[in-house]
């Protein structure tokens, strides 16, 4: 559904419009939020943040028409910002921050430069590329197992297989991925 169609639906039934918005962009928002909170939040944290994002979007959708033409990008931006906020509050609550004196900070600053950033972006791209090249259902199984930390039984429902098949398929897919990454010069 386009932004304009959603807006028309909003005039008929705001609740249906909200439901459709969440159905259309739910996975997208979940992927963004999970990506930011994976390291510091629980499943509940991710879901709470997910709800916050949609609450914000419902409100903006009602009062602000300017994002209708590019609604997906707008939703992506809101999701990213909300997830970053949540990440900060969770990190602070978990006391993840450590004291670094000025000398150490100077060292860190000089180490963290564009080259590093570029390198990790490039590694991510290669990793994703290689996972996708494994084909379905292996790519889905690997990502859901190791990135989304889902159980084999849960993944089994998604890919219409048994849990034991998912486990064995996962082991083989992981081996294949290792081989492909090694060919690309990445040792894991």
């Amino acid at each position: 559904m386009t932004g304009t169609e959603l807006k028309e639906l909003f005039h008929e039934s705001p609740e249906e419009c909200h439901r459709e918005l969440m159905r259309e962009y739910g996975k997208y928002v979940y992927a963004i939020v999970f990506n930011k909170l994976r390291s510091c939040g629980t499943q509940e944290d991710v879901e709470e943040c997910f709800c916050d994002v949609f609450t914000e979007i419902f409100l903006k959708f009602e009062y602000d028409d300017s994002m209708i033409n590019n609604i997906k990008a707008y939703i992506g931006t809101v999701a990213k910002h909300k997830a970053i906020d949540r990440f900060r509050s969770l990190s602070a609550a978990n006391s993840h921050s450590v004291y670094i004196d000025e000398e150490e900070m100077a060292g860190l600053v000089s180490d963290f430069r564009v080259d590093d950033h570029f390198e990790s972006s490039e590694l991510r791209r290669i990793l994703i590329q290689n996972i996708k090249e494994l084909g379905e259902p292996d790519s889905t199984i690997l990502i859901q197992k190791f990135y989304y930390n889902r159980k084999s039984a849960e993944i089994a429902k998604t890919v219409s297989m048994t849990a034991s098949s998912v486990r064995s398929r996962c082991t083989r897919a992981m081996e294949k991925l290792r081989g492909k990454l090694a060919e690309a010069g990445i040792t894991v």
Partner: peptide, 27 residues
């Protein structure tokens, strides 16, 4: 060790987010 490879995917760039959305579990 397997999980460590996937930790690399955190805080990914926006351009890769489409891939993640595709591989995201259904709600």
């Amino acid at each position: 060790e397997d999980k460590n490879i996937f930790d690399m995917l955190e805080n990914t760039d926006d351009e890769l987010m489409e891939d993640f959305t595709g591989l995201c579990p259904e709600i």
